[in-house]
Nucleic acid binder design. Structure first.
Lengths: 213, 213
DNA sequence: ACGCCCTGCGACAGAACCGCGACAGAACCG
DNA sequence: CGGTTCTGTCGCGGTTCTGTCGCAGGGCGT
């Protein structure tokens, strides 16, 4: 059980770690916790590691470090093609992995503060502009905050209470229909047809979610 | 996916690298991170590589190295005409690219110091003078600090709190309308018509930003 | 099939935000 | 010490945004 050992070691180095035994569990944990970085072991039961990597990269800009026992070129090329940011060969010393993690986080810190691309939607988080198919979309401050919050964890369901807390920062006691209204206004600007929303989707009885995944 | 490979290789050679898949993303990333140098692949989806190069050069003095698969004269001439500082033919070995990067940085190190050009606005950061269409513009110290702060990261939105902290260095607890006022005074001096500002733009609900390029 | 609850959607008034001019104290300089 | 420039504060007005309401349509459970 290498996993528990790494979890413990990385925790001691100051990281906030959670692990999962299989690819499916990992994807589920990824979706629910929206981590800053994923360390992905290619030799995992169930789903192919490359596939997991692809799905994570498709969901957002989360950087991925691959952990592999094989160091032949095929894996390196394939891993980078699947969207990995770096790879580490097992057996990996915790200090080495830590160094790589910090390097990747440092490197992606800038870009992460810059552009989020989801399909035809591009969000510049430092310039605070949103463009759809290359055309700028003028959003109001609240709409933009809502979109930024939702896209921070694509695929994750945000309840109305949670959105009220994060987007409307004060502890709001009023009508939670306010969220619906703002979603509606946002959809009118970024969705092609609002009856089948592509980006901001309704999860009946719970809240809203960005993207399919 | 040559991009990831180059990114990784250049990182290991000591560079701080971020990449983007398309021309638009690249321009957005360029605006938000203000890099020392840009390596530009001509064969990119979306916007024409030459156009990207032109826009980068128009925005400032950032040096550009072009990466091209074609080495015929047309591209070389066209690339240099668009403002490239050097060009490298694919497939490029990382060591070669690294050498060219260091050469260009060494060459431009001296000239890059001191002047920022944005459209018709020129800012001499060592002489602390600002000129518009060749004509000198007298700015007050605060206005100048504000302009310097904003132009340090063109396209990026600065909140009022952040500007108060960086321009008015003391931790200011007073009216944040002060920022509006200073912006207004700065605009009166450098904007042709203040109703459609070209350089200092308002981002309603958040703050201000220098030019969207 | 029926009814309930949830969500979509348009309308509207109050609120927030920003541009802009005016003014007085502060700082600077001769 | 006096004059000039700069800076911070205030208030007003136009514009835009936001929060609330009401109604309608549709899914879901009974």
């Amino acid at each position: 059980m290498v996993r528990r050992g790494l979890e413990l070691a990385l925790s001691r180095l100051g990281h906030d770690v959670s692990t999962a035994p299989t690819g499916e569990d990992g994807l589920a944990a990824y979706r629910s916790s929206a981590p800053d970085l994923v360390v992905l072991d290619l030799m995992l039961p169930g789903v192919d590691g490359f596939e997991v990597c692809r799905q994570i990269r498709a969901a957002g800009g989360t950087p991925v470090i691959m952990l592999t026992a094989r160091d032949d070129d095929f894996d390196v090329v394939g891993g980078l093609a699947a969207g990995a940011d770096d790879y580490v060969v097992k057996p990996a010393r915790p200090s080495v992995l830590d160094a790589r993690i910090r390097a990747v986080l440092r490197r992606t810190a800038g870009t992460n503060e810059g552009v989020r691309a989801h399909g035809e939607l591009r969000i510049d988080t430092s310039g605070l502009t949103v463009s759809l198919r290359g055309e700028q979309v003028p959003l109001t401050p609240t709409e933009l905050r809502l979109l930024l919050t939702l896209t921070r964890a694509p695929g994750r369901v945000f309840g109305r209470e949670q959105l009220l807390q994060e987007v409307w920062e004060h502890d709001y006691l009023g009508d939670s229909r306010l969220v619906d209204n703002c979603v509606q206004r946002l959809r009118a600007k970024i969705e092609a047809n609002t009856t089948a929303p592509r980006y901001v989707q309704t999860v009946r009885g719970f809240g809203y979610r960005f993207g399919p995944l």
